[in-house]
């Protein structure tokens, strides 16, 4: 599995197809986050923006490998494991991006509540922001896994489905990502830090289910 992950990671890193989502995310943050803003608000924004980026990265990892090359790997390790490696690498990339964003946002933001009256401990804020980012990365990975091959094959259907699902995952109440982000934003008003552990667990569960579904279908669908 290590060799498989290293291969998929090299494929993603060297293809440079990761650049557009990374740049888009940087642009999101550049527009929405400014120095001196309340830290929890900014962290919530950074985590929410990560979700569509994570879904896009999954799409890049799955469609980036030419099908014939995918068959060579699938013959060696089985199609399910080959697909699992793609999804894990995509999730790893978005989690790393989220971690970097969390550090930067915590660094430049004002460690205070929304009205700048109550002090918010920056380290605790960073941990809460990181957990929210991980939850959003997990849910984004689930969205990406369910809106690309082997579930949806035509680009014309897959891309709108991905965008719609990402949007819904952010706004529908009861979604772990929505819960994690609104937890940060609500906490910002009173200046209290809540660790979004429950949303993280929910997102992990959904991501695991989506991954299992996608990997199980790889050998059933045509390439």
């Amino acid at each position: 599995m290590t060799a498989l992950l290293r291969y998929q990671a090299a494929l993603l890193a060297r293809s440079q197809r990761w650049l557009p989502p990374f740049i888009l995310y940087a642009a999101f943050l550049g527009v929405g986050v400014q120095g001196g803003q309340p830290v929890l608000d900014s962290l919530g924004y950074a985590a929410a923006a990560l979700l569509p980026v994570a879904a896009w990265l999954v799409r890049i990892c799955v469609t980036g490998e030419p099908p014939a090359a995918g068959h060579c790997v699938a013959a060696a390790v089985g199609p399910g494991r080959a697909h699992l490696a793609r999804l894990l690498v995509a999730w790893g990339a978005s989690a790393a991006l989220g971690a970097v964003a969390t550090v930067v946002v915590t660094w430049i933001s004002d460690p205070a509540s929304s009205d700048h009256q109550t002090r918010v401990p920056p380290l605790q804020a960073a941990v809460a922001g990181l957990l929210a980012a991980l939850a959003c990365a997990l849910l984004g990975t689930a969205v990406g896994a369910l809106t690309t091959w082997p579930l949806l094959r035509s680009t014309g259907r897959a891309v709108p489905a991905l965008l719609l699902a990402a949007l819904l995952a952010l706004v529908v109440s009861g979604s772990p990502a929505q819960a994690a982000v609104s937890g940060l934003v609500t906490g910002s008003r009173s200046g209290t830090v809540d660790f979004p552990l429950l949303p993280l667990a929910g997102a992990a569960l959904l991501a695991a289910a989506a991954t299992a579904t996608a990997c199980a279908l790889t050998s059933r669908r045509s390439p």
Binding site: H71, A74, A75, P79, S219, R220
Partner: peptide
């Protein structure tokens, strides 16, 4: 592909 078990 069935023999290579890349398809079920």
């Amino acid at each position: 592909r069935l023999l290579a078990r890349t398809e079920a």
